[in-house]
Design a protein around this nucleic acid. Structure first.
Lengths: 242, 242
DNA sequence: CGCACTCTTGAAATCAGTCAATCCTTGTGG
DNA sequence: CCACAAGGATTGACTGATTTCAAGAGTGCG
């Protein structure tokens, strides 16, 4: 079930800027494979030298780093349309790992073709850079969260940001989002322990901020969540997609 | 005292990959100004819509984000040769501020020229992307630090990383580095309070890990610092510079 | 001299981490 | 159908790291 870019159902969504036929043709030639990765398995290893560049086609994934003794920090989550592996492709060595959170489909862009892409299709290269910066902005935000917010604020910030991003991809229906993170993932993303994460989530749910069970998230009181999170982002403008 | 790129004393240092004459000419035409910013003043405001792209020519700078109530997180420090403002240039709105830590000289690259740069000088555009990824990798690291290391580890990780980067720029002489961060900066970069930062630094100094006073840093026991920091980086390969 | 900035120090308060069980659901094998 | 294992969520009690509050000391500067 290989998906050709000119038949890609993702790129026509409202979240993405339309591309010309020629650009899509370039991207289609660029794409070397369409992978299916089962939930829980990794597709970039820390230390890996030859990691490719991926666009998430469907499902959720995340990047992480860890210390010797196993302490793990999730750096950011990737949703459909997001790029994963630009650093690893450019820097000749991955400094992080990437894991499929749900079953995931990935479009593969061979790292070897990246440099020539800058020569042959500058508009597409510009989009690559743009998407890299976008991810960078998210990590910046996550650093602010881990460094300066308390537990309740961290959880609201994470939930608000993911909910918002999912919304633009029409992944929210009737106010409910399929939310595949376990509490362990949330803890790892926020720099908290599992136990403290659990207790804080319980308190926030009891306060009626949001509901989350059986992998279904909905914001019961979006205002209050947004206030705690100090989540300022307005509706994100359409963005490029490869 | 405008510095033309073909006379740039920075780009000839061993830390940077040499460029062809044509490339330097392109960069020289790209450069629109050479700014001097006094220590402590900011050159990118959070929320600023028209931030330019800068290369640090001399001195130290940093990027930061803050919350409503003033809690501030430093995202990363920039040394000579580092790029600042790529996100802000690309994303039409800065989501962070940038401040001169010491007196700083900046090479200005107008954001307006960025897109056309991708068409006219793909090798240079590639370097821009590369440098963006490089900064991204540093922020990833800082997120791991803020999320998962304890106070002593955080301080060692920061010191080790900055010392190492400064070393490659020949800013370390006789084992001593001019280190312009106040303890408040260190605290803001690591997600710690000032008081706890102070006490932890005092303890580490007493243990003979490093010395730091009057803005002079030296690693008394580099091994121990590296071990606590779990700082794996080997000698960084030469990198591009604009 | 007085002000501003940075660094220090002590004590009290609190947030978050660790340890240790228990519960629940789901899937598997007998 | 039942026993059992595995993964995730939950809870209580305790410990400890880090923050907050408050005060003081050293230095450079107008």
């Amino acid at each position: 079930m290989y998906v050709r870019c000119f038949k890609c159902p993702l790129r026509v969504q409202r979240a993405f800027t339309p591309k010309t036929e020629e650009e899509v043709a370039v991207i289609d030639r660029l794409k070397s494979d369409h992978l299916r990765i089962p939930a829980g398995s990794d597709f970039i290893n820390p230390e890996q030298a030859d990691a490719e560049l991926y666009t998430v086609f469907s499902g959720w994934a995340f990047r992480f780093k860890e210390l010797d003794d196993g302490r793990r920090q999730i750096l950011n989550f990737a949703l459909p349309g997001d790029l994963i592996g630009l650093q690893a492709s450019l820097l000749d060595k991955s400094l992080y790992g990437a894991v499929a959170l749900t079953d995931v489909e990935l479009c593969v862009i061979p790292r070897r073709k990246l440099y020539s892409l800058f020569k042959s299709a500058p508009e597409v290269a510009y989009d690559v850079t743009w998407l890299g910066s976008q991810e960078h902005a998210i990590v910046d935000d996550n650093l602010l969260t881990a460094g300066r917010r308390n537990a309740a604020e961290r959880i609201c910030a994470l939930i608000a940001a993911l909910y918002r991003r999912a919304e633009t991809l029409d992944m929210v229906s009737n106010g409910v989002l399929d939310f595949p993170l376990t509490q362990q993932h949330i803890a790892d993303a926020l720099g908290l322990s599992l136990v403290h994460t659990n207790k804080t989530i319980a308190r926030l749910k009891a306060q009626g901020l949001f509901s989350l069970s059986d992998g279904k998230l909905s914001l019961v009181n979006p205002r209050a969540v947004g206030r705690l999170a100090q989540h300022f982002e307005k509706d994100p403008a359409p963005r490029p997609i490869l």
